[in-house]
Simulated assay, not measured.
Amino acid sequence: MKKTMVLFALVGLALTTSCGKKEVEQTEETIETQLEETEQVIEESVEELEESVEDAAESVEDTVEEVTEEING
């Protein structure tokens, strides 16, 4: 769910940036650069989120194992 929210936020920012100044003409090169930068930011954010999820999952697994060991004695 967090990934989806981050992606929507980043795409919204990219669209706001690219459409914000209608008076100024943007070249194709500028638009391509913005798209590449946006894709890079999205990829980095997704990687960070995946790492966070993996860390959280490992933490939960460790906690479950500890509680199970305590219960089983």
Rank of each mutant, 00 (worst) to 15 (best):
M1Q: 14
M1I: 09
M1S: 11
K3N: 10
K3I: 10
K3W: 05
K3G: 04
T4C: 05
V6E: 04
V6P: 02
L7Q: 10
L7A: 07
L7C: 10
L7P: 09
F8L: 05
F8D: 06
F8R: 06
L10G: 07
V11G: 06
V11E: 03
V11A: 04
V11K: 12
G12Y: 06
L13N: 02
L13E: 05
L13C: 04
L13Q: 07
L13H: 03
L13T: 03
T17D: 03
T17G: 02
T17I: 03
T17F: 09
S18N: 11
S18D: 07
C19W: 09
K21G: 04
K21T: 12
K21Y: 15
K22L: 03
K22W: 03
K22A: 02
E23D: 13
E23W: 12
E23Y: 08
V24E: 12
E25I: 08
Q26V: 03
Q26R: 11
T27W: 11
E29P: 02
E29F: 02
T30F: 12
T30S: 12
T30V: 15
I31S: 00
I31G: 00
I31A: 01
E32G: 00
E32W: 00
E32M: 02
E32I: 01
T33G: 04
T33S: 03
T38E: 01
T38S: 00
T38P: 00
T38H: 00
T38W: 00
T38M: 00
E39L: 12
Q40H: 09
Q40P: 04
Q40N: 10
Q40L: 08
V41Q: 13
E43F: 06
E43R: 13
E43L: 08
E43W: 09
E43V: 11
E44A: 15
S45N: 09
S45F: 11
S45E: 13
S45P: 07
V46Y: 05
V46K: 07
E47K: 15
E47P: 03
E48M: 13
E48F: 14
E48T: 15
E48P: 06
L49Y: 01
E50I: 06
E50A: 10
S52H: 09
S52P: 02
V53R: 06
E54M: 15
E54G: 14
D55S: 06
D55A: 08
A56S: 07
A57S: 12
A57M: 13
E58R: 13
S59L: 10
S59M: 15
S59P: 00
V60S: 06
V60H: 12
E61N: 14
E61A: 15
E61G: 15
D62P: 01
D62L: 14
T63M: 11
V64H: 01
E65R: 05
E66K: 11
E66R: 02
V67F: 13
T68M: 08
E69I: 05
I71N: 00
I71W: 01
I71M: 03
I71K: 04
N72A: 15
N72W: 15
G73F: 14
G73H: 06
G73L: 05
G73Y: 12
